[in-house]
Design a protein around this nucleic acid. Structure first.
Lengths: 224, 224
DNA sequence: CGCATGGTTTGATCCTCATCGAAACATTCT
DNA sequence: AGAATGTTTCGATGAGGATCAAACCATGCG
């Protein structure tokens, strides 16, 4: 009956279906209002509000009040990583995989993980960037290589403008069980992909689907 | 109200204090009997049995019957990784850190993570092994370097005898937020450390405490 | 065999917590 | 100011599930 950090408290927060749905929705990276989350979770507004305050108190969420809207978002990358880890286990032990459906395939290839790209394509990208010595792995940390600044500047990404969070971080991928790129650079790359319309977010899903020309452009820039 | 893998189901399994205590105990790596786990969780035997069957059904545990004993253990490294991830969040958001006590410090330095060593000392070891090119990072995977076989053979660890699991794996450390070494090699090294009596398991804890000469020996072999 | 020990099943109890309707509060728009 | 929309609080209801005592299996020992 030893006592460590209160793991049961955190897990039970995620353990309610309504709250799990909310967190899943927030894994999309965009902050959502209480009403949107209520809809997402399939519960009434008061119920959702109650859940949200519990998640807030548990430190899993942050909120930004803008006028009469309150935008809820995940508290940070660590929380996102935890959700991914739980998802991985659920995926592995879940015998309920009745419909591996097309959307599921799309998720494996590319999806949003909090604020950056995940999935096979993202894993391949990080591998290639490390191969080309543009990024350098240093344990769990990832550092910028000598040619990083010029390389990313060439495609319109300034790696020095957002000093708050670490620029690069590794994030474990639940579908491939390898790392992909997180941090501000990861976020900037996802922005770029969406801004250039190389890919679009699937409606009501974390899946990211590339158009054929978009896929080519992505491969030319990041896998070439 | 999209439906992914059943994350709430898994999280709610971990979300009960009794079950969380059991899982925590099993993070020590050794399989335990139902009675031991009941004691660990602070509940009666029937209650524990009920919890254990739930965890089994959820796919988080495996059991091995030996005579009239039933030894329960974690289902695999992925489950262990999930627990570590949840622990990390609980640690981060937990304002309840009333007593950072000495045992907590020992845990940060070195502890057992399922079947291998974790903590600052383990992170330092992996860094050094990679620096010396004995191991080679390849994304989340870790491969053996050219001199690996001879290097480990010299200290009595045969890296080719256990082909079932991957030899090396990276595992994210919750206290340092960097990777340490898992896989069969990680397990073999922990075995070595305990066999040579360089360190001993703290009673009723995951902490691993090195004796002064043991620490020197460890540093000579793995950090030299 | 019969007895002890480890483990599970059953049944009953109790309590937490998810849920929603109604009302209160807040903010923005007209 | 008043209406409309977004959000939280309050109160009551209900269901799920954690708990243990007692009875029930199973294995090992003499």
């Amino acid at each position: 009956m030893r006592e460590g950090p209160d793991i049961a408290r955190i897990a039970s927060l995620v353990g309610d279906p309504a709250r799990a749905n909310m967190l899943n929705a927030l894994m999309g990276g965009t902050a959502l209002t209480a009403s949107e989350l209520a809809l997402e979770a399939g519960v009434s507004l008061p119920t959702a509000s109650s859940h949200l305050s519990k998640l807030m108190e548990g430190g899993l969420l942050t909120v930004a009040s803008q006028g009469r809207h309150r935008y809820y978002g995940l508290a940070g990358p660590q929380v996102a990583g935890m959700i991914e880890a739980i998802t991985g286990v659920a995926e592995a032990v879940g015998p309920k995989r009745v419909r591996p459906g097309p959307r599921d395939g799309a998720m494996r290839i590319a999806r949003v993980c909090y604020d950056h790209l995940a999935g096979e394509r993202a894993v391949a990208m990080l591998d290639r960037l490390v191969d080309k010595n543009i990024l350098v792995r240093d344990g769990q940390e990832i550092r910028l290589g000598p040619s990083a600044a010029s390389h990313f500047a060439a495609i319109g990404i300034d790696v020095y403008t957002k000093p708050r969070r670490p620029v690069c971080r590794a994030c474990l991928d639940w579908s491939v069980r390898r790392s992909h790129l997180a941090g501000t650079l990861g976020a900037a790359i996802l922005d770029k992909i969406l801004a250039e319309k190389w890919a679009r977010r699937e409606k009501d899903s974390r899946a990211v689907v590339f158009s054929p020309p978009g896929k080519q452009a992505f491969e030319r820039v990041f896998l070439g």
